[in-house]
Design a protein around this nucleic acid. Sequence first.
DNA 1: CAGTGGTCTAGACCACGCT
DNA 2: GCGTGGTCTAGACCACTGG
Lengths: 264, 264
Amino acid sequence: MRLTDREEIAGVEQRTLTQRIADDVRRAITSGEVAPGSALLSERELGEKYGASRGTVRRGLAVLVNEGLVTSRSGLGYFVRAYEQLDWYPGTFEHLTQRRDTAETGADAWASDVIAQGRTPRQDVDVSIITPPDLVADRLKLDLASDMVVVRRRLRYVDDVPYQIADSYYPRDVAEGTPIMAPGDVTIPGGLMAAAGHRQVRFRDEIAIRMPLPTEGFRLELPAGTPVAEHVRTGYNSDGRPVRVIMTIVPGDRHKIIYEVVAE
Amino acid sequence: MRLTDREEIAGVEQRTLTQRIADDVRRAITSGEVAPGSALLSERELGEKYGASRGTVRRGLAVLVNEGLVTSRSGLGYFVRAYEQLDWYPGTFEHLTQRRDTAETGADAWASDVIAQGRTPRQDVDVSIITPPDLVADRLKLDLASDMVVVRRRLRYVDDVPYQIADSYYPRDVAEGTPIMAPGDVTIPGGLMAAAGHRQVRFRDEIAIRMPLPTEGFRLELPAGTPVAEHVRTGYNSDGRPVRVIMTIVPGDRHKIIYEVVAE
DNA sequence: CAGTGGTCTAGACCACGCT
DNA sequence: GCGTGGTCTAGACCACTGG
């Protein structure tokens, strides 16, 4: 019956039932008719409303889930997602960003950014020596495949919600015997780079936009339909040598990335 | 029967059949076992292989589609997606980026970037006067809700593939009587801003990572599972006045965004 | 033409959350 | 216990692509 019913309504209806459901609900959300955080009709109710089977309703809602507009919670229902983004300023130098409050709180550039926005930062840090991934070896210009690097793996939280994966890679000779090797969440006024005796005078940031890998999604507790930025910074010292690579995974639903650039 | 079959294999198998299919195929792709561009088994074949119904296979493959790993073409099959990204350097000033080849080809900063990478740029341009969206009005500090702005809407292509939506907004008094108002793809050595008598001495770039709106996906011909960066640049002149807002929609599958920053 | 994906249905069982 | 989403099946018809 359905096909004829549907086509009767609007002559030749191009869109599928799935699309109609997705479009209707999307419009209700983007128009503000249903507020962020509030619940949608249940799958069975929507099925009733549109004369659709549950499978079709689920496909329609899946579209919105993958667009990041909606999440589902088992046993509860579907909810409109609410976004609250933190400003992240990667485009400033550690040793220049260092703020008044930093010295007092012992916060690094990121942490003091977070504090400035009235939130509470925390990070789990783990230091180890590894064979670097190709991406890192290339950027650090390590010629020997056997060269190992020091990696500081950080999982950064804001108000106890995971916000970023930030892994820093240092050539061994740069890191060894410096505070970089210190385990845990150490903070050095002026930055770790300076503490290791290198002035990072230039960096190159490469930003790729993609969907998270399953492991990243898991670690960062990302809902479906949440893309990430893969932010790779290569830092150079005054000799033009690459001395650090930082790879940061930045969930799109929690961040706005900001660069301020001034002509010299 | 299946449930028992499956559990027999590995004691207590947590993952669902859908997940197993998705995981298996993903591993085959990320390990390089199946090359980019090549075809996967058909839905019916996978169903056979895993003892799954077609619906289940489709759900498994949908996971990979939404991760951007795979696309399907009706009547043909599923294919591993191939990524080829263009480097985009937004972090440099128009009037500084201006290159030798620019003067010759009449290319703007973006176009000469593209040319430098051996590709062919093109853009459709459309100029009109509108009431600005809130995002723009805020950044241009327009106080009257009635203030109108000049917008140059561009859809930029590389080798005839849509690459970016780039819409520039100018206050009327900045744009009127200048080449900014010229319809079509005009290019002025030194940039439109300079031609309008303003030196853009500072800008602020805000980058949000999200899934595309349906209209954006349509215009840019984005496959499912392709996130975008929403790149908003506010440019200021030497008086500290915001004189331009550029909103660029940057598909993640075609771009790498690069900022080079040098300590002064 | 045979094969592929796209859409849809109707029914089933499960785990989960709340009351 | 009842309602919610999560998973799965089996079967159907369609439009499209290629040889």
